[in-house]
Amino acid sequence: MKKISAILLAFAMTASMLAGCGSSAADSSSEEQTQSESQSGAQETESEPVDVNVTALKGPTAMGMVQMMDDADNGKIDSENYQFTIAASIDEVTPSISQGETDIAAVPANVSSVLYNKLEGGVQVLAINTLGVLYIVENGDTVQSVADLRGKTIYAGGKGATPEYALNYILQENGIDPASDVTIEWKSEHSECVAALAQDPSGIAMLPQPFVTTAQAQNPDLRVALDLTEEWDKIQENAENPSALLTGVVIVRTEFAKEHPEAVSDFMERYKSSVEFVNENVDEAAQLVGNYDIVPAEVAKKAIPACNIVCITGDEMQEKLSGYLAVLNEQNPEAIGGQLPDDDFYYTQE
């Protein structure tokens, strides 16, 4: 009996052990399945479209986006949910970025640095979207070089912003003191400069595109005397770290870029394609620019080739923009928010 009892006990212990192993394997299998389902669910969530709020200013900084805007409005984009806003003034854009209402924005180049410093690294630059668009125009034929501006009166808009700093830099580098060698009449808006030219037969003005085209439409005799982008480049020819005259950049909220890198990548691919379309299909692009009330289509058609619309990213972006900001910093540190941005200001694709 004792032998039989021992055998039965051994069977019972073995059965118990096997049952335990079976339970452990089942639990392990169930856990793996749960993890797999969880990972799958996370992947599905990440791939779902996110809301991307984009803001651009009226003018060249918005022109490069028009094909992308049109595709989004016509349901041709389903990767992300894009919402575009065209603002009339930078004063409308900066608060919306600060408050997280705008995720991506096209802004003046120096404003990007101001926001970076103000928000303590809260924005990053994705791309340079517009090179120089400033020109000296006149009702006559007296200005053939920067030196010819000495003693002249220049109507200009953009005091305290890129136009003022660019003009001062180019004048100074050509031996002209902006405070004493020329008279600069600052206007609150570029349209006021156009009006001043219309009333002054010998008038000279610094205007950006597309206002140059608008002014020439009103006065066909108005001549483009100097391209300030070319004049800037002449100064930089022998520089150790050459910079470029820039107008606008595209920035992203740093928090948004960290949370939605796929959305940022999607935007950049579509934006680059849109810029290429605008530059290669001027007539069609001009119609879209008019449709979005950025500037009239007939103005856009003539202005686009002179607007220097680009999409420059990566190392080239950092080289050009950092050099430009360094020039502004030498003139007035407040123009860039008090100090040059750190390297994390320049967005790099992970």
Rank of each mutant, 00 (worst) to 15 (best):
E173A: 07
T214M: 15
V93P: 03
N279L: 11
T162K: 11
I90E: 08
N53V: 15
L340E: 02
D73G: 06
A217D: 09
G132L: 07
Q218N: 14
D51I: 07
S112Y: 04
E48F: 04
A6G: 09
I154W: 09
G157W: 12
E185D: 11
P108H: 15
N129Q: 10
P305F: 09
A161R: 10
D283M: 11
T102M: 03
E350L: 03
S16F: 10
A198M: 09
K58A: 12
N117Y: 05
A306M: 06
P261L: 05
N238P: 04
G314E: 10
L131W: 07
D315W: 07
V278I: 11
D200M: 02
A166C: 05
L226I: 11
V264Q: 03
S36Y: 13
V125Q: 00
V295I: 09
V137D: 01
E240R: 08
Q124V: 05
E255L: 05
V182W: 14
L131Q: 08
Q33N: 12
K234T: 08
F211T: 06
L197T: 07
A244Y: 08
I154H: 08
M65E: 05
I86H: 02
R150K: 15
K58S: 11
P163G: 09
D315K: 08
L207G: 12
D221S: 14
V264E: 04
D148T: 09
R223D: 06
D344C: 02
E231W: 12
S16N: 10
K302Q: 14
V194A: 08
V146F: 12
V66Q: 00
E269F: 01
F211W: 12
A306Q: 05
A161C: 04
G151V: 03
G323D: 00
L288K: 12
D91H: 10
I136F: 10
M13N: 00
E192G: 13
A106K: 00
K118Q: 14
I309K: 00
E138Q: 15
Y82D: 04
L126N: 01
R253V: 00
W186T: 11
T34D: 05
E284Q: 14
G151F: 07
E31A: 15
D27W: 13
A239C: 06
A56M: 05
L222S: 13
M1A: 10
N332R: 14
C21M: 07
D70V: 07
V107I: 15
I176Y: 11
N129R: 08
V249R: 01
E189M: 12
K272C: 01
S24F: 14
I7G: 03
V299C: 01
D177W: 15
I77K: 00
V182M: 04
V125M: 02
K3W: 13
Y135A: 03
D293R: 11
L207C: 13
E120I: 05
A88N: 12
V289L: 00
M1S: 10
D70Q: 14
G59A: 05
I86E: 04
T34W: 08
T162M: 15
Q43P: 01
A62N: 03
L288H: 03
V212C: 07
P210W: 05
C307G: 13
